[in-house]
Every structure is written in C-alpha cells, then in structure tokens.
C-alpha cells in the first residue's frame, strides 16, 4: 500500500516537471513548477526528511514561486499583439532547426537517462554518517540531528552558505541597476489587503519564532524561520510599506550581516581560546546555537525580503517605461 502511494507521488513529480517545461504558456509553467515543488515536499515527508520538506515548501516552492510570479509581470505582456509576434518568431525559428542535431540530442538524453538510472540503482551500500552523528549527538547541545549537523558539526558550511545568500543579494542588487533605496510608495488602497497583511504579520512572526525554538528538538530551525520572517517583509512590501526603503541604511546593513558576523566572531573567539573554528564547549552549545540561529534567521529574512524588493522594483521600472512610451 505504501509503495503505491510512493509510486503515485513519483509519477506526479515527473509529470509536473515535464508539464512545467512543455506547457505552452509561461503562466502555466510557473504554476506547474509551484505544484512540482509541493510534490517534492510531500516526497521528502515520505522519506522522513521533515526539515527538508519545510525548507522546500517555504523557499523552493513559496519564495521562488513568488519571484517567478513577479517576473511574469515582465514576461507575460498585457498587450496580446506583442505576444503573438513573439510566438510567431518562435515557431519560425523552430522550423528552421535541423533534424540531425535534434536526433543527437534525444539519443544523448536517452543514453544519459539509462546511465543515470543504472548509477542510482547500483550505488554501493554502507558508508553514511548516521552512526557517527548518533554517537556525537549528546555533545552537540541539541536533540534534532539535522540542526546538530547544520550548526555544530558542519557549522563552517552553514556559515559559508549564509555568505552565499548575501552574495546572491549583492548580485541581484548589481543586476538591478540604480533604483535601489527608492522613496516609499503609497500604501495599498485596498482596505481588506491592508487588514489581512496587518493580521498576518504577527502570526508569521510568532510561527517563525516557534519554528526557530522547536528546531532544537524537532524539525525546524534557522532557515525555515528565516523564510517565514522574510515573508513578513514581502507582504509588507506588497502592501505598500517598502520597509527596506523606509529603514535607515545602516540598520538594513546591520540586519543583513548580523548573522554572518556574529557567527564568524564567535568562531574566532573559540579559536583564540585554543579550540578549532566553530568548536563550541558542550556545556554552552545549546544556548549558543539558539543565539546563532536567531541572528542567522534575522539575516536570512532580511536578505530574502531585500531580494524580493529589488526584483519587484525592476518590474516597477519596466511598468513606468511602458506607461510613458
């Protein structure tokens, strides 16, 4: 019975992936990709990886889906004539392509599929670090093994990864051009939207804090909490309170870097005391991890909402150009 559910879920994921690439309209592909992310989240619950499922549903399906939806403002033109011209250009260029390269591509893909299937089928057993993680778990200061790996055993990787998010933000900032830190827009006119946003802001904050705290013993942690807090920023931005622009510049910079900075300072302090980088004393590990996670979640939330705000402003500039011409 459980094999039937797994099989159906696998077929669903493959179908959604194929359809999101083959759908004729861009809007359809974006929504099917949304659904694909949620199907993957279900697959992760079936594989007993609840931490990963929360992260997938929140970041890969939720946050990225919002970014794609926002991008549709650019790419799904409201003027149908423009769209048809583009479509025509498409079909013309497709008929021109040669038969032989296509055949080679499909043959290569088929061969690659066979090789990949054989590779995952024959992957050797054994190895794995479950036993090692299990024996060291009491010293890590937390009870959830995933949190222990993320913030204690492999804290170095997590630290670098927060740096990657910051670099991602800087890259979006650089690609976005000059319209950062714009003047705040008019708050949304729709009273219902404002009320809903005002209602959900404390709820999301509370739920993020809950996930942060529960990460010590069960599924949850800094990344999941960071995305939920980032969702607050996105909602406020959409409701017409662009807090990135409202907040003083130094405060924004502080929020963005506090997680990375505190993590690094702490690591060097323990190095100066004679330990290795990010080697916490077991007695204080629990409370240190909670502090690091809180600061990391704040930084992640700030970075994600800033990425959304910057991408949204790219679209707004395009709208302005369209309306003036």
């Amino acid at each position: 019975m459980s094999l039937i559910i797994d099989g159906l879920l696998a077929i669903l994921a493959i179908y959604l992936a194929l359809q999101s690439l083959l759908a004729p309209r861009l809007t359809q592909s974006v929504f099917l990709f949304f659904a694909f992310g949620l199907a993957l989240a279900l697959a992760w619950i079936r594989l007993a990886a609840v931490d990963v499922a929360i992260t997938e549903a929140a970041i890969a399906a939720g946050f990225l889906g919002v970014l794609f939806l926002d991008a549709l403002r650019d790419f799904a033109p409201r003027i149908p004539a423009k769209n048809e011209a583009v479509q025509k250009q498409y079909s013309k260029s497709q008929t021109k392509s040669l038969f032989l390269p296509r055949l080679t591509l499909w043959a290569g893909l088929g061969l690659f599929l066979l090789i990949a299937l054989e590779a995952v089928w024959k992957i050797p057993e054994g190895g794995g670090l479950t036993a090692a993680a299990g024996t060291l778990l009491p010293e890590s200061g937390v009870e959830n093994p995933v949190t222990a790996v993320l913030l204690n055993f492999r804290a170095y990787d997590t630290w670098l990864e927060m740096g990657v998010i910051l670099i991602g933000l800087l890259a979006v900032f650089a690609a976005g051009g000059k319209m950062a830190y714009r003047k705040p827009g008019v708050a949304s006119q729709d009273p219902l939207l404002r009320q809903v946003i005002l209602f959900f802001t404390p709820v999301l904050f509370l739920f993020g804090a809950f996930l942060l705290y529960i990460g010590k013993t069960g599924p949850g942690g800094a990344f999941q909490a960071g995305v939920l807090w980032g969702a607050i920023g996105i909602l406020l931005h959409l409701g017409g309170w662009p807090f990135i622009a409202l907040m003083p510049r130094w405060l924004g910079q502080l929020l963005l870097t506090v997680g990375l900075g505190f993590f690094l300072v702490l690591g060097f302090l323990f190095m100066a005391a004679g330990g290795a980088l990010f080697e916490y004393p077991p007695a204080y590990a629990g409370i240190l991890i909670l502090i690091i996670e809180t600061l990391a979640a704040i930084s992640i939330a700030a970075a994600l909402s800033a990425i959304f705000a910057l991408l949204n402003q790219i679209g707004e500039e395009a709208d302005e150009i369209e309306s003036t011409t």
């Binding site: 729709d190 219902l192 809903v196």
Partner: peptide, 16 residues
C-alpha cells in the same frame, strides 16, 4: 482557520 482566512482574502483580491 489560517487557510480559510488566506484563501478567502486572496479570492476577494483576484476577483476584485
């Protein structure tokens, strides 16, 4: 309850 609230307000916004 949260799903109800979110979906009904989204429904209103899309319809509007």
């Amino acid at each position: 309850l949260f799903t109800l609230l979110a979906s009904s307000s989204t429904c209103y916004l899309i319809a509007h």
